[in-house]
Design a protein around this nucleic acid. Structure first.
Lengths: 188, 188
DNA sequence: CACGAGAGAGAACGACCGTTCTCTCCGCTC
DNA sequence: GAGCGGAGAGAACGGTCGTTCTCTCTCGTG
């Protein structure tokens, strides 16, 4: 039998796939059981409630997202290119099959008003991203305000790509970010 | 007794308030009945299903939003200020009590995957906004691409203001938009 | 006053959901 | 081989939801 860690991962992976594709409230725990191949009893032993499972799914997505943007940034050498790498990362993501927007924005829209724990998880994720961009902006010797503006472009690209089914949103956001970075004196 | 038009408006207003504050699926039709003071029988005579009611609520929001941004644009005289007026409109909205993000983005996250009609209503709303900004951008003699970038900033400001509880997002977005507009030659 | 159309109140219905419980079966220990 | 702890399968439970139905009352008409 799967050990607890393996079972947790199977459940989270299955729940993530279903929640992302259909929305959280549209997926019953029995569908998670079927997708994960783990009995309901075991699932509830690992996650006391559906809300706990949702939080775990979001935590997993935060980990993946953080890895992705940091790897994308590390691949570039120029400090400004490291900032712009965020948009290349988004571009690749938008073009994936089954892309349906940012899971955090979606979860917030669905459950942010009802579940403070989920609202907090979404907040934490977005704040971690803001801090990441802020660090890159400072390394490039640019003023802090630029970081927030880059974040706004990234968030806007995600919602627009999802709703308008427009994968080019990342490219447009990158172009806008290039202008914003170029408008600042190279202080660093 | 209220005529059909009055009853429709009462139901839509009540549903809008509840859906926006708590999310759509978290609000039962009985809560709408209580808030509107219209019997379930009457509600179902006016709206064949909850989905129809949601679509009607979104249509009402589109009307209000369009009025708001057009009024804000009309108040400015300089073509570029008319574009930037969008962000002043957002700024005032973000500071309202009970602001909880863009109802369309929230609805899309909650039901976009399940209900094509709702996904379409959200698409239509965002596309109308894009067309509005595009018109303003052309009137200012700026290249079309600027319109999409302004839209990205506006969308990003809405999600960020909601999730981060940061009403200043509109001001940051405005500053970024100013830079983008200034970077273009004044062709008009 | 008799009566019928239509309205409101709210009970009822069938489905589903999150969560728990029961039953059965398997593998280990003596 | 007997007994037992723990696991899976899935039934069961209590609650809620969208939707419909029933009952009662009112009101306008003859």
């Amino acid at each position: 039998m799967l050990d607890d860690a393996g079972a947790r991962e199977a459940v989270v992976t299955a729940a993530d796939r279903l929640f992302y594709a259909r929305g959280i409230q549209a997926v019953g725990m029995d569908a998670v059981r079927a997708e994960a191949g783990i009995s309901l009893k075991r699932i509830y032993a690992l996650f006391p409630s559906k809300e706990d499972l949702v939080v775990a799914v979001l935590a997993g997505r935060t980990r993946e997202w953080t890895d992705g943007v940091e790897r994308a940034a590390a691949a570039a050498s120029d400090p400004r290119d490291r900032i712009l790498a965020v948009f290349d990362f988004l571009d690749a993501w938008f073009r994936e099959d089954g892309f349906r927007g940012c899971a955090f924005i979606n979860s917030f829209g669905e459950l942010g008003a009802t579940s403070p724990r989920i609202a907090d998880a979404v907040f934490e994720h977005k704040d971690a991203f803001r801090r990441h961009v802020l660090r890159l902006v400072r390394e490039a010797g640019l003023p802090d305000a630029v970081a927030l503006q880059v974040v706004l472009l990234a968030e806007g690209a995600q919602t627009t790509a999802a709703i308008m089914r427009d994968a080019d949103a990342a490219r447009q956001a990158r172009r806008a970010a290039e202008v914003l970075l170029a408008a600042e004196p190279a202080a660093g």
